[in-house]
Simulated assay, not measured.
Amino acid sequence: MKSKTINIIGLDFFNGEVDEVVSALEEGGLFVFPSGPGLATIKTDEKYHQSLKAADLVIADSGYMALLWNLTQKEKINRVSGLEFISAFLSDTEIQKNSNILLVNPSKKEADINLSYLQQCGFSLTEYNSYLAPFYDKERIEDVELLRTIEEKKPKYVLVNLGGGVQEILGAYLKENLSYKPAIICTGAAIAFMTGEQANIPDWADKLFLGWLVRCVEKPNLYIPRYLAAIKLISLMYKYQASPKVI
C-alpha cells in the first residue's frame, strides 16, 4: 500500500482514513497502534522502537501525540484510534464472512469474552480461532508455539490483544519468522472497549481525543501514572523537530 505518511519522532505515521487501514489489511503485514506512553519510551526501549520501525503501517492512535502535533505543525495528522479501527474491522461484512482470524489473548477469561463478542458480531469462530499467550519475558519476546500455530492454521488476520510494548515486539517477531504474510494487527485493549472489559469510551470522547480521560476516571491508580509518564513525549517531539538525528 502506497500511503501518505507524516514523519513524527522518526516514525512514518499513516495519514489517512480508517477505511484505508482496513483495505490495507488485504496486503498483509504488521499494523501497530502505539500509545502515547509507549511512544514516550522509544529512546530507552530499543526493542520496542525497532518493532515500530519494522511495521508496515504505523497508525496514529495516540490522541495525545496527534493533539501535540496538530497544535504545533501546519501539516495535520489524521488520528485513527484503535477503537475506531476495531469497530470498522469487526463491522466489515467481507471480513465477517471470511472469519479467517486467530485471536491472541492474554487470558482464558478474555479469550472467552472476545470469542463470544465476535460471534455476536457475525463471525463464525470457535476456540480453534483463539491462542492463549504465555507470560512473556520482556527481555525475550518470542513464541515458537504461536509461530507453529499460525503456520498450521494459516489465518488471514492475526489479532493481537496484548499490552503495549509486548504486542508490537511479538508482532515484529512473527512478521520476521512466518513463511507467509498475514495481517498482524496489534490493537491491544481496543477490543476490550467493545466487549465492556475496559472503560466504555463514547464516540464523542474518542473523536475529541479524550479516551485517556475516561480511562483515568474509571481506573485512576492505573492510568494516571501511565499518562503522566507520557509527558516525556513533549520534549521528545520538540527535540526531534529541532534536530531529527536525535532519535
Rank of each mutant, 00 (worst) to 15 (best):
Met1Asp: 15
Asn7Gln: 15
Asn7Glu: 15
Asn7Arg: 14
Ile8Phe: 03
Gly10Lys: 01
Asp12Gly: 10
Asp12Val: 10
Asn15Asp: 03
Asn15Ile: 05
Glu17Gly: 08
Asp19Cys: 08
Val22Tyr: 00
Val22Ser: 05
Ala24Glu: 13
Gly28Gln: 09
Gly28Tyr: 03
Gly29Phe: 03
Phe31Trp: 10
Phe33His: 11
Pro34Val: 06
Ser35Met: 10
Leu39Phe: 01
Thr41Ser: 04
Lys43Trp: 11
Thr44Lys: 05
Tyr48Ser: 07
His49Arg: 12
Gln50Thr: 01
Gln50Cys: 00
Asp56Cys: 04
Leu57Gln: 14
Ile59Asn: 01
Ser62Leu: 13
Ser62Gln: 05
Gly63Asn: 10
Tyr64Gln: 07
Leu67Gly: 11
Leu68Ile: 12
Leu68Met: 08
Leu71Ser: 13
Gln73Pro: 13
Glu75Val: 15
Glu75Met: 12
Lys76Ile: 02
Arg79Asp: 00
Leu83Ala: 03
Phe85Asp: 04
Ser87His: 15
Ala88Pro: 03
Phe89Gln: 11
Glu94Thr: 10
Glu94Ala: 06
Ile95Tyr: 08
Asn98Leu: 14
Asn100Gln: 12
Leu103Gly: 13
Val104Cys: 10
Asn105Met: 14
Pro106Asp: 06
Lys108Tyr: 13
Glu110Asp: 12
Glu110Pro: 09
Glu110His: 06
Asp112Gln: 06
Asp112Met: 09
Leu115Trp: 03
Tyr117Pro: 02
Gln119Glu: 03
Gln120Cys: 15
Gly122Glu: 08
Phe123Val: 13
Phe123Trp: 07
Thr126Glu: 12
Asn129Lys: 10
Tyr131Met: 11
Ala133Gly: 04
Pro134Gln: 09
Asp137Arg: 14
Asp137Cys: 08
Lys138Cys: 13
Arg140Trp: 06
Ile141Ser: 07
Ile141Trp: 01
Leu146His: 00
Arg148Lys: 06
Arg148Glu: 10
Ile150Asp: 07
Glu151Ser: 07
Glu152Pro: 12
Val158Cys: 06
Gly163Glu: 07
Val166Asp: 02
Val166Ser: 12
Glu168Leu: 04
Ile169Met: 10
Ala172Trp: 13
Tyr173Met: 03
Ser179Pro: 12
Lys181Gly: 01
Lys181Ala: 11
Pro182Lys: 06
Ile184His: 03
Ile184Tyr: 01
Ile185Trp: 04
Cys186Trp: 07
Thr187Asn: 09
Ala190Phe: 00
Ile191Lys: 01
Ala192Leu: 11
Ala192Glu: 14
Met194Tyr: 09
Ala199Ser: 06
Asp203Val: 00
Ala205Asp: 00
Asp206Trp: 00
Leu210His: 00
Gly211Lys: 01
Val214Ser: 07
Val214Phe: 02
Val214Tyr: 04
Arg215Ile: 05
Val217Arg: 03
Pro220Asp: 12
Asn221Phe: 11
Leu222Ser: 13
Tyr223Cys: 04
Ile224Ala: 15
Pro225Cys: 09
Ile231Cys: 10
Ile231Thr: 15
Ile231Asn: 14
Ile234Cys: 13
Leu236Trp: 06
Tyr238His: 14
Tyr238Gly: 08
Gln241Tyr: 04
Ser243Gln: 13
Ser243Asp: 11
Lys245Phe: 04
Val246Ala: 05
Ile247Gln: 15
